[in-house]
Design a protein around this nucleic acid. Structure first.
Length: 592
RNA sequence: GCCAGCGUAGCUCAGUCGGUAGAGCAGCGGUUUCGUAAACCGCAGGUAACGAGUUCGAAUCUCGUCGCUGGCUCCA
């Protein structure tokens, strides 16, 4: 295994955060939009309107929600400002004056924002035409810079992201310096739609979510289940080879356990109602850790036993609010590729580095090459002692540094029980996906009074690391589908080769080829229908079969196969066993 | 959960002003036996998500419920 070999940094170091020209343009476009909205809806109150990853938005407090027609009208109204080529003027103003001014305008949200800024601070305003907005800037110099833009959708959003506060109406849009760039952006959105794992799941017959089963509960169809099996087999093999032990735990446990673990307190909103078993309350598990911990406590542990690395593909159930469910990416029942490491304090550094390397190895095996790493630190609400937190954060930092992984700080983003490393995958469309997480936990060893016997005979408390590499099989599968647009790598493709007969005359040999391939361990299907070859190819192509084996008179005569790959490449005719060798040879994880 | 939009055949979608449901693909049966992205003919398939209301009459208008989609909040 190459787990411990140093790996090159997967991503280039990121420059300090600053405003890109496109961000500035988008931000300016949001001002132009706000101006248009104020003209069309004089009663609307403005709030905030930043540039975001792929565009901008602006939140308004309005009498009634915007409609699609409103968006068209607002877009047209914006054109007036763009055409008028207005200048963006920066102004500085005293804080108290600013409060006065916005109060006079009836812009109560702006007043609230400014009142949150310390007294005596100079406030900057940006003005174009008659519209003035509290804003740090920067902006483009003139409205005519906004050559191409589109308002894409409207959505509700809470003021300051707080669901107890006013629901505002958010309009999303995007702006570009020319029409071509806008069209390119819209094309990308179309491309993303084609890759949507929900679409692919249906088209490729991989999985479904049925309302009769329940939202967020996944049915894995034969082909999806086969790929899942292949992923899991690989995962188990790699874990065993990497010093993990595999464990298994049940789906429910007595309420007591969740009382001790603390889930009944701080995780209550995600728990399903319990069930009565012989007068005892049982709960469906939302996490696997208490089971592994209980296993740890099953006997007295020695420092010689540590580190213990226990891994389980553990299926958990968590209540998620109906509005957040999304295909396989956000579900209510899912299988975590979980593991818990019980270690001594001295082992913390090494184990963090080791598990991070292992994580990269696993992810790279699936063909991901680009990652974004975040070090999430102590949140406002936390348990434990500050020195212990600092120590754990330092250990995580050292682990990342030792590997040479570039990372960003996610200040206050840690779990309440410990800091963590979040590793996000960057996919073929440059989107980030949260899958892997490596967390230090001081809390549970404490709550469960975990102990091991140290060399001096004293009882010591171990530290726990929680980690999931793929995150959940469901989410990871979705990311794989979107990354590969459904064309899964050969080693996890549910069907590796499809036998396509040209006519009935080649049917017998077609069956023979299928049987031979299957017997040799190739995942194969046949299409003996009376359709013409073109139709069979088309079907196999849409099914994203890696190899198509056309069987016609020539192949029958030569007792060979002519593989066509899904990228359209046509190989020379070869004997069946040569093709088998080729498939088996190519069917492996990406080298990492 | 909240805001908005949507829900018509397995899938993708039409359906005028409220007048009693339609296409393509898929499925099934037949014909065809064909060489690299869709052969032809036929058949079947719908309590219009569900429930109530308005109306002589509802896929169409109204209300409620459920579900989905895009966001918000939360997150593997």
């Amino acid at each position: 295994m190459s787990n411990d070999a140093p790996n090159p940094p997967p991503v280039a170091p990121k420059a300090a955060r600053e405003h890109s020209p496109l961000e500035t343009l988008n931000h300016s476009a949001s001002h132009v939009m706000a101006a248009a909205v104020k003209r069309l809806f004089p009663g609307a109150k403005v709030t905030i309107g930043p540039a975001i990853d792929n565009g901008f938005y602006y939140d308004f407090d309005v009498e009634r929600p915007f409609t699609e027609e409103d968006l068209v009208a607002i877009e047209a109204e914006m054109a007036k400002d763009v055409k008028a080529d207005l200048e963006f003027q920066r102004e500085e103003i005293d804080r108290d004056q600013a409060v006065e001014m916005f109060r006079g305008m009836g812009e109560s949200y702006k007043v609230e924002i400014i009142e949150g800024i310390p007294a005596g601070t100079t406030i900057t305003l940006y003005r174009h035409g008659d519209f003035v907005d509290l804003c740090r800037g920067p902006h483009v110099d003139r409205t005519s810079r906004i050559k191409a833009y589109k308002l894409t959708n409207v959505a509700g959003a809470y003021w300051r992201g707080d669901e107890r506060r006013q629901m505002l109406q958010r309009i999303y849009g995007c702006a570009f310096t020319d029409k071509k760039a806008l069209d390119e952006h819209l094309r990308k959105i179309e491309e993303a739609k084609k890759r949507d794992h929900r679409r692919l799941g249906k088209d490729l017959d991989l999985f479904s979510i049925d309302e009769d089963i329940g939202g967020g509960l996944v049915l894995w169809h034969p082909k999806g289940a086969l790929t899942r099996y292949l992923i899991e087999e690989f995962w188990r093999r790699e874990h065993l080879a990497s010093g993990y032990d595999l464990v298994n735990s049940p789906h429910i446990a007595r309420e007591n356990l969740w009382q001790t673990s603390g889930h009944l307190g701080w995780y209550k909103e995600n728990l399903y109602n319990g069930m009565d078993v012989d007068g005892q309350q049982y709960l469906v598990k939302p996490m696997n850790c208490p089971f592994h911990i209980t296993m740890f406590k099953n006997r007295l542990r020695s420092y010689r036993d540590l580190p213990m690395r226990w891994a389980e593909l553990g299926t958990v159930y968590r209540y998620e609010r109906s509005g957040v469910l999304h295909g396989l990416l956000r579900v209510r029942g899912f299988t975590q590729d979980d593991a818990h490491l019980f270690i001594t304090k001295d082992q913390l550094n090494y184990e963090i580095e080791r598990v991070t390397r292992f994580c990269l190895h696993i992810l790279r095996s699936f063909g991901f090459v680009s990652f974004k790493t975040y070090l999430a630190t102590r949140p406002a609400k936390f348990v434990g002692e500050v020195p212990a937190w600092d120590e754990a954060e330092a250990a995580l930092k050292r682990g990342l540094d030792a590997i040479g992984l570039d990372y960003e700080m996610d200040v206050g983003g840690g779990a309440f029980y410990g800091p963590k490393i979040d590793l996000k995958l960057v996919d073929a469309l440059d989107r980030e996906w949260q899958c892997s997480t490596i967390q230090v936990d001081f809390q549970l060893p404490e709550r469960f009074q975990l102990e091991y016997v140290a060399p001096d005979g004293s009882r010591q408390r171990p530290i726990m690391l929680h980690r999931a590499l793929l995150g959940s099989i469901e989410r990871f599968f979705a990311v794989l589908l979107e990354h590969y647009a459904g064309a899964l790598p050969l080693w996890i493709a549910p069907v590796q080769a499809k036998v396509l007969t040209v006519s009935e005359k080649s049917e017998e040999f077609g069956r023979e080829v299928e049987e031979q391939l299957r017997a040799a361990g190739v995942r194969v299907e046949k299409d003996l229908s009376s359709d013409k070859l073109g139709a069979k190819i088309r079907r196999a192509q849409l099914e994203k079969a890696p190899y198509m084996l056309v069987i016609g008179d020539k192949e029958v005569a030569a007792r060979g196969v002519s593989p066509r790959s899904r990228d359209g490449r046509q190989a020379e005719m070869m004997p069946i066993d040569a093709f088998v060798r080729q498939v088996l040879d190519e069917s492996h994880p990406s080298r990492s």
